[in-house]
Write a protein that binds this DNA or RNA. Structure first.
Length: 271
DNA sequence: AAAAGCCCCTGGATGC
DNA sequence: TGCATCCAGGGGCTTT
């Protein structure tokens, strides 16, 4: 479900409200991807300092230690002072003086992991491999090009891998490549400088627009405050196999790359 | 070092 | 209605 815009929209929707809250109780239900890594009860009494994002991870800074939270494929957060009884897919809950943060995740690919610090082994393992933040100043055409040059794999898969640039998931990878006019199967290393430049701009453009729309994507998304995405961003190619390209009219095609579906226009993305 | 596969899990849509 | 199959916006881990 969540790519960078959705994760960031989620963060923005509750970070300011939870900052300063003191933890009253923490409950970890049916196991997520990994165990919490500490006794839930031991977190009681700690204070939330801030909520940051790195890639698709949310980092909940406490006055001692931090929580790494990932929404996986089907996770969503809600932060509210009044919540109904937990449902069968509510696997993590943190009651605080400002409200309750609850993670709902039917598929349980998500995770909540405690780390004593960002330098702790578990935090390093999860965060160290992450590539550049696409919406940050650091994400330059030069560094992007340098990162792609040492990857011979298909550009779509390199984008998804997240070790060159983070946050570009399956939908936005297809969309960005369409905007840049690049065939998803071409080797990342073989992209010319001008094409890398176009892709760089396309990634920023599509992510920023989705974020501006409140994390709007094709399906339902709502932030931790219950705000729905605005759906202002319509897919050019994603999930549009057989439908006419919005630019040239040719039928959109799909293919499988690494067990994920990819969509592209055979005319607008010639190579 | 990089690439390719596998796997975790549940639910919704589709087909018979 | 029931059952089987396929697919889903992620990513860590193991094997080539």
């Amino acid at each position: 479900m969540p790519e960078l815009p959705e994760v960031e929209a989620t963060r923005l929707s509750f970070a300011h409200r939870i900052a300063g809250a003191r933890l009253l109780s923490v409950r970890m239900g049916k196991s997520l991807r990994w165990p919490l890594g500490c006794a839930a009860a031991s977190l009681t009494g700690r204070t939330v300092l801030s909520v940051r994002r790195r890639g698709k991870y949310l980092l909940i800074d406490l006055d001692r230690g931090l929580l790494l939270l990932h929404l996986g494929m089907s996770g969503s957060l809600i932060f509210s002072q009044q919540l109904p009884e937990p449902g069968k897919h509510d696997h993590f809950e943190m009651v605080t003086t400002r409200g309750t943060l609850r993670l709902n995740d039917p598929r349980r690919f998500g995770a909540v992991v405690y780390a004593a610090s960002e330098e702790a082994p578990i935090a390093r393992k999860l965060l160290a491999r992450l590539g550049m933040e696409p919406l940050s100043e650091d994400f330059s055409i030069e560094l992007f090009h340098a990162g792609l040059k040492r990857r011979k794999a298909a550009i779509k898969q390199v984008l998804l891998a997240g070790d060159v640039v983070v946050g570009v998931g399956n939908i936005y990878a297809s969309e960005a490549l369409f905007l840049a006019g690049i065939r998803p199967t071409v080797s990342a290393a073989r992209l010319s400088r001008p094409r890398v430049s176009r892709l760089h701009a396309a990634i920023r453009d599509v992510l920023a627009r989705a974020l501006a729309g409140g994390g709007s994507t094709l399906r339902n998304f709502s932030s931790a405050s219950g705000e729905k995405g605005h759906f202002q961003l319509e897919a050019m190619v994603y999930a549009r196999e057989g439908q006419p390209c919005r630019v040239c009219g040719k039928a959109i095609r799909s293919l499988r790359q690494g067990q994920r579906s990819t969509f592209y226009c055979p005319v607008c993305q010639k190579a």
